[in-house]
């Protein structure tokens, strides 16, 4: 298929996935800052910025991470290329550039999202409206993902869309977990305390895994088990191992590949998948979860670049 088309599909799915993640992140940050027992509600918002991977850009623009500044920056700011609004805008721009590669249902899902977004943007935002907006983002992104899964031919276009979605998801999951382990626990005493407990609960909420955790582990929320769920459990569709499995499956399924070009991206994806598939949580934690996760985020970046190079994006 046309390389530009593959690239547009890849980014269409990535940006939709990112919008979904940001909406979840903001909802949980709002929830957390409301139930915090100590006065320092703002650190929730700072951690949201870190988990969104835009710490530097944000503080170049804002003095402090408050509810107002973070929500505005992550949800609405047109100056932030990764704000929810810009994610949907960029998705739609990519969709429009490859209309011929989309099913009509897919185009309508993306285009209607974009039209409704403009209604949200032109109306005044208050707390109720924000909740409505974030719920709407989650519903729309689910719709777009569902529609493409249900309507696209299982050919290269589908595989690139899938790879975009799961590469973005892997990146998000790794960042989220990393932030919780390192930004969010200011003192050693906090570990295992009430605040800590809520923190881990919050992580599960962001990835919609509260119930999944209960089913798989039963009992109290333990940091190591949350990490295991998000990194190693193949049953959980947001875990890193699940994401890399999807990436590998779809990379391998791309029909018209030039082996000389695409061998490097496959090597990266498969070696990472093997590490996750056969990894165990204890050694990962012992050797440093932060190192493990930040290396994985780097790998995601490298993999994205190699996929683009290997398929002439």
């Amino acid at each position: 298929m046309l390389a530009r088309t593959a690239s547009n599909l890849f980014w269409l799915a990535r940006y939709m996935e990112r919008a979904d993640y940001l909406a979840r992140l903001l909802q949980v940050a709002g929830h957390m800052s409301a139930v915090r027992v100590d006065a320092d509600g703002n650190s929730e918002w700072e951690s949201a910025i870190a988990a969104a991977g835009c710490h530097e850009e944000f503080f170049g623009k804002h003095e402090a991470a408050t509810a107002g500044s973070v929500i505005d920056y992550l949800a609405f700011d047109r100056g932030n290329p990764s704000s929810i609004c810009n994610c949907i805008e960029t998705s739609r721009r990519n969709a429009r550039a490859v209309r011929t590669a989309l099913t009509s249902d897919m185009w309508e899902a993306v285009n209607t999202s974009w039209m409704e977004l403009r209604d949200f943007e032109s109306s005044e935002m208050n707390e109720d409206r924000l909740t409505e907006f974030l719920d709407w983002v989650k519903a729309r992104t689910s719709l777009v993902h569902g529609v493409y899964a249900n309507t696209m031919l299982r050919r290269d276009g589908f595989h690139f869309t899938r790879i975009g979605q799961f590469l973005e998801r892997a990146d998000n999951t790794a960042r989220l977990l990393d932030v919780k382990y390192h930004v969010r626990l200011p003192t050693v005493q906090d570990v295992g305390g009430v605040v800590d407990y809520y923190q881990w609960l919050a992580v599960l909420r962001v990835v919609g895994a509260r119930r999944a955790y209960r089913v798989l582990f039963k009992g109290h929320v333990e940091p190591a088990q949350v990490a295991e769920l998000l990194i190693l459990r193949p049953e959980f569709p947001r875990s890193l191992v699940f994401c890399f499995e999807q990436i590998c499956l779809n990379l391998d399924a791309i029909e018209s590949h030039d082996p000389r070009l695409s061998s490097e991206c496959k090597r990266i994806a498969h070696s990472q998948y093997a590490a996750l598939r056969f990894g165990q949580i204890e050694p990962i934690i012992e050797q440093g979860l932060h190192e493990f996760l930040s290396e994985l985020v780097d790998r995601c970046g490298l993999l994205g670049a190699e996929i683009a190079r290997g398929h002439l994006f």
Partner: peptide, 24 residues
Amino acid sequence: GIDLVEGADLLVRNEICYMRSTSG
């Protein structure tokens, strides 16, 4: 059911026109 291309997707070599696809 054909590809929608932009100028940057096309190139001409030895007076033959090609498009850049994921397989070359």
